[in-house]
Every structure is written in C-alpha cells, then in structure tokens.
Design a protein around this nucleic acid. Structure first.
Lengths: 245, 245
DNA sequence: GAGTGGTCTAGACCACCAA
DNA sequence: TGGTGGTCTAGACCACTCT
C-alpha cells in the first residue's frame, strides 16, 4: 500500500497532467484535502510539498496552491554573440546591468581556466540579466591581465562599474588585438543555494543551469572565461556545432 | 525571527560547508536534533528535508542522513562522436543498451524537429546508458523514414532491438548516403518526474539535464533527432564552437 | 534488539492575501 | 474578515539497517 500522502500526490499530479487543473489555477487546498481524504493537516501538506518540489505547483499564502506554467521559456543562447542576444531574446522588458567590476587575484579555478598563475591579476565582472522584475541570470566573467590592460589602453576601462562600454566585449577584444576564435561551454545543473534562490527568486522545485565558458583565440590561448548561473525555467542553452569527421 | 526549522537547517548547512560534516558521513539525526534544539520530531525532520531538497544530504532509513558528495562527475559530452564517448568517459563499468526499437508514427514534436509530416513513419530507438549499477542517461532517438529504410537496405535493421549494429549511427548514415554535417543541441534542466526518478534512481534534490538534439546534413535537412535525459549529478554537457564573426 | 528515518494524528496559533 | 498556506507540538506506530 502506498502511503496516504503519496496517494494524494498521485491524484493531484494526474489531475495536473490531464489538464483538470490548468496552469495558473489552484489545486484543492489543505483543508479540502483533509476533509476529502480524511487525513491530518500535515499529511495533506506533505502531499502538496511533494508537488512543489517537483516544480509543478507553487503554494502561496492567502491565495492557494497555484499550478506552475511548466513550459520552458526557452531563451535560446548563442555563444557566437553572447552580449547582444539577451535583449533580443528575452523581450522588451529585459535589461542587463554590471553590478561589480574590478581587478582581483585569480583563484585556483579561474587561474586554471585562463591558464595564468594563481594570484595573478585578472579583471572580474559580475553582470545581472533581468527578465521583467526578476534577475534571470547572473554572470561572473574574468579576463587575463594582458587583455584587461590592452583594452584599457584602447580606451575602455572595464574595471569601472559605472562606465558603459560602447561595444560588446568581443569587439573590444578585437580592437585591442585579441581575436576570439572558439568558445567551449560546459553545462551542468543543480539545485540553487540559498543566496541564488534569494537574488533570483527561484521558486521551490526549480534547478539552476550553470554554464562554464572559456573563449580562446586562434592560438588556442584563453582570452576570457565566465560562469553563468540561471533559473532553469527562465533559460536554456543552445549550441550548433559543425561535425568534422 | 527565522523559523525554528530554518535555524536548524542553516546550522547544519554551514556545518557541511565548513567540512564539519564530510561527504559520506552523517549529520545529527532526528532525535539528536529534537533534544539539542528542544523541538518536536516533525520540526527536526523539516530541517533535514530542506537540506535533502537542496541536494546536500540523503536520508537513509536505518543508517542516518548522509552528506552527499556534491562533486560533479563531469562526464564531458562531445557531440562529434556521440555513441562512442560514453564508454570512454564513464569508465570501465559503463555500458549502454537498446531497450526499445521500432517504427512508429511521428508525433507533433518529433515531426517538427525532423521536418516530416505528423503521423509519418519514423524509427524510434530508446537507449539506456549505465554507469555502474545505475542508469545515468536515457536517450530517445528518432530517424526519418527515408533514412531508416536506406540504412536497412544497406544491411542494418535498426528496428530490431536484438540486433547489434556493428558501427555507430553516423557511420551507418554515411554508408547509406546521408552525411551528417551539423548538430544543434538545446540544454534545459528540471526536476525529474516519478518515472525518471524511478528508472534512474535519482536522489531527492537532484535535477535532470535534458538535451534536445537535431542532426542535419549539408543541405540543412534533419537526419536525426534525439532527447537525452540524465541525472544532473552524473552528467554534464560540453560544447566547443568556432566563432565566425 | 537498538537505533535510524518515515508516516500520521488532532489540535493550536501565526502570516498573508483578497474582497 | 474569512480563507489560504506555514509553523509547531507530543505522542504513537511502522519500516528499515546494522550488529
């Protein structure tokens, strides 16, 4: 025999699957489930909690337990033009903002990706990508010392949060004499930690997608690396790769 | 004031972060927490449940609540050689197995990806990729009718589950006169549904990574599409893309 | 058998939202 | 103000694992 809360969960889940409870509407509340199934409050709540952690519903105090719209928003992501894509694809109410910029000492991870010595100076940029009222992605980006100074000498100080570069980063790199040739991206997923859940307002049951990127020039030397963390229900990553066989 | 269970969760989480509770060891159990914090059983359990849903611990009856090893297993994935990579990267105790094969009518989704009419015949293959004792990935793959029959005429019947093709799919395609030229992959993540949780034995708090792929020939016509679902703590996807600017 | 986590109850009070 | 979900309790019994 399955447990009582599992029984209730299954009934509600099939109801959602079959469209009995549409996205945006509410499923039967705690008190209703208590009465209809003859269970205690915590048992009814346990059933709902399972659905919440599966990402199917979002309980809201004073409102009810709302069925999530599980359709992926599918913000396609093209590594070929990382900077501009956001505005095009996320729609009119999208914006992005540099919240942090400056020089810092490379830690082990960043130094390894950029193939520079640990503790050597690198430029670190943190950007927030907004979609409507939410931060949908957070990007941490690092550039090796040589490139940071070369871009500065070409007239753009990346270590200044307030300054608005008038061109995207790859263009700035080219002007400074570094031509990006390839990007390698590695995608993983996990549940958000509390700070991510906080700044991006990730609902329960929604994982984050993490993209680690390394951009290299024609000599295969790293010219940029970044880590992008995004709410998995507000982003997806897409790649087109030629096959050389 | 934070809630009692949140308080306990935070204490335990920082303990894990700081290495006080190492991966593989157990955190204080329900009864210990009840005594030390002076709370009821369900309150202590709620604190542990939060950590479980964050993917940090796995409660086990009769054993204790074990700290998960959160290190990503990072099975790099190269779209250039999809079939062979598994064995190389997942190690010695990896294997893969075709669990389903045959002709079926294309549904809306598959028809759209392959750019064939809805309800036209397609080959459907389901493969399980094992890592040790677990299924780590499930791949659903579809080929358009023309290619399925061409490969059959070239001597390999893909619609037969028992038959072991002696070459990887891309090679079979080439022999049948279709040369794959590009792949486009879209990666998303979500929490597993019950059936996925079941066959892949996904622990609580671990999302699945989903890769939608379309392979095209030189004329940009789709020759294959597949959807791969994998436990996010047992796989990652990696892509290297040349920049053409 | 001792100790772990899992289920369930009946009842209390609190926080929040909408009408 | 009435209805929603969130927190918490004290106590019972069950399922599982390890020794």
């Amino acid at each position: 025999m399955t447990t009582k809360h599992a029984e209730i969960t299954n009934d509600l889940r099939t109801g959602i699957d079959q469209g009995k409870y549409a996205p945006g509407s509410t499923i039967p509340g705690v008190v209703v489930l208590m009465r209809e199934y003859g269970v205690a409050r915590e048992t009814a709540r346990a059933a709902i909690a399972t659905l919440a952690h599966e990402g199917l519903v979002t309980p809201q105090r004073g409102v009810g337990t709302v069925v999530r719209d599980t359709t992926p928003v599918a913000l396609g992501y093209k590594p070929n033009a990382p900077a501009q894509v956001w505005a095009q694809q996320a729609g009119a109410n999208a914006k992005d903002e540099t919240v942090e910029a400056g020089w810092e000492a490379a830690d082990h991870e960043v130094a390894g990706r950029l193939e520079v010595p640990v503790d050597s100076q690198v430029i670190h940029l943190v950007r927030h990508y907004w979609k409507g009222l939410n931060v949908a992605q957070i990007r941490d980006q690092w550039l090796p010392e040589a490139i940071g100074t070369a871009i500065a000498q070409a007239g753009t100080d990346l270590s200044d949060t307030a300054s608005k570069p008038e061109a995207d980063l790859y263009t700035l790199m080219e002007r400074a004499g570094y031509r990006p040739a390839t990007v390698t991206e590695t995608v993983v997923a996990r549940m958000p930690d509390p700070s991510e859940r906080d700044t991006m307002e990730v609902p329960a049951g929604v994982p984050v997608l993490i993209t680690h990127r390394v951009t290299r020039d024609a000599e295969n030397k790293p010219v940029e690396t970044s880590t992008t963390v995004g709410c998995a229900d507000r982003m997806s990553a897409s790649f087109t790769v030629p096959l050389n066989r």
